[in-house]
Amino acid sequence: MTFLEVKNLSVKFPDFKALEGISFSAEEGKITAIIGPNGAGKTVLFRALLGVLPYEGEIIWHKKPTLGYVPQRLEFDRTFPLTVKELLLLKTKWPNFWLPKESALKEVVNSLNHTRAGHLLDKRVGKLSGGELQRVLIAYAIFGQSDFLLFDEPLSGIDIEGEMTIYGLIKHLAKELNLTVLFISHDLNIVSEYADSVICLNKKLFCSGVPEKILTPEQLKALYGAPITFYLHKHEEPVKHHHS
């Protein structure tokens, strides 16, 4: 079933066009990757979907979405004494922040457990490591029965637990919770490994379809304007970069 349908979407800023006539759809329960060069309008597309940017064209949700969003690089004040529990409770109705109901607390723990972050409940967000923060942010995104997740380029390098990468976790959660996922990525290995379908964007829609069809040298050259050497390694673990 189609969850999201975007028809002829354009976003214009005073001095330039960020997106021009984009059309695509996202299937329920599937993971769709968005690829494209820098400045292609990927984040702009997210902002339009989140309803914080004015746009022309149509964004049709075939059922009412509960959106969860994980930003690209979360800039925040590490000295602000917010705890992980409090962060998630900020998403609930306001008395819960001060006097959380049993049910609300249970849901907080449940979300954190889904991303293997249950033990971080009372930790301050400013004191989390990179991998812990990623897990907490994903828990925050799925908290409140989210059914449609937007990931703005999750850091590919972070192993969240042993060998499982953040993408492995996303894929696992999508299946377990029947989430529809849209993620932005630069890493074509990751896209081929984890995405059910791919959208290539460079202000206009260049191509869309299953990774095997999209990630061909010809398509990529058209998208990036230069030959991209890329080989599908179907059964290998994607290359990991360690940033820690």
Partner: peptide, 14 residues
């Protein structure tokens, strides 16, 4: 609170 913590996160929630 959300904006104080991170405006990125706040606009992401609409």
């Amino acid at each position: 609170s959300k904006i104080t913590f991170s405006s990125d996160l706040a606009w992401g929630e609409g």
